[in-house]
Simulated assay, not measured.
Amino acid sequence: MNDPPPDGPAGRPLLAAVTLPCGADVDLLLEQVAGGRGTDRDAHQQQCVHCQAALSEFATLWAPVAELAAAPVPAPPGLAAAVMNQIRSHVRDIWYTLEITESGAIRIAARIVAALARDCARMIPGVRVAFGRSTQDTIAARAEKATLGHRHPHAAIGVLGRTAVVDLAVAVTYNDPAHQVARNIQRQVITSLRDQVGLQSVKVNVTVDDILDDDES
Rank of each mutant, 00 (worst) to 15 (best):
D27I: 05
W62V: 15
A109P: 09
D42R: 12
S103K: 13
P72V: 11
G38K: 07
S192M: 13
V33P: 00
W95P: 00
A115M: 09
R187K: 09
G8N: 12
E216G: 08
W62F: 15
I106T: 02
Q45P: 01
K203I: 12
H50C: 04
V166W: 06
H150A: 15
R122M: 10
A69C: 00
H150C: 14
A17C: 14
T101F: 10
T163P: 01
G132W: 14
A156H: 02
G104Q: 03
A24P: 01
N85Y: 01
E102D: 11
Q46S: 13
L20A: 03
R41L: 13
L55H: 09
D93E: 08
A24S: 13
L148D: 12
L212W: 11
L28R: 15
G23Q: 03
G132H: 09
P9V: 13
Q136V: 07
H154F: 14
A66N: 05
G11D: 15
T138Q: 05
Q52Y: 02
V208P: 04
Q186A: 08
A53C: 04
D176M: 07
R162I: 00
V49H: 11
A53E: 11
Q47R: 15
T147H: 09
F58D: 00
V129L: 13
A80I: 05
P5L: 15
Q86G: 08
V33L: 12
A10G: 09
A121I: 08
S89C: 03
N85V: 01
D167C: 02
S56P: 00
Q196L: 15
I100W: 00
V166C: 07
I108A: 00
H154M: 09
Q196K: 15
D209M: 01
H179Q: 07
V166Q: 04
A71D: 07
P72A: 03
A66V: 06
E144V: 14
G104N: 01
V165A: 09
P125H: 05
L55W: 11
A63F: 10
C48E: 03
L212T: 03
V26D: 08
P177E: 04
D93T: 05
D3T: 04
G35I: 06
Q86V: 01
E67W: 06
C51V: 11
H44K: 10
C51M: 11
A70S: 10
V166M: 04
V83W: 11
Q196D: 08
V73N: 10
E31V: 07
R107G: 00
P153Q: 05
I100N: 02
I112T: 15
P125L: 11
G198C: 10
V206C: 06
D3Q: 13
D7N: 12
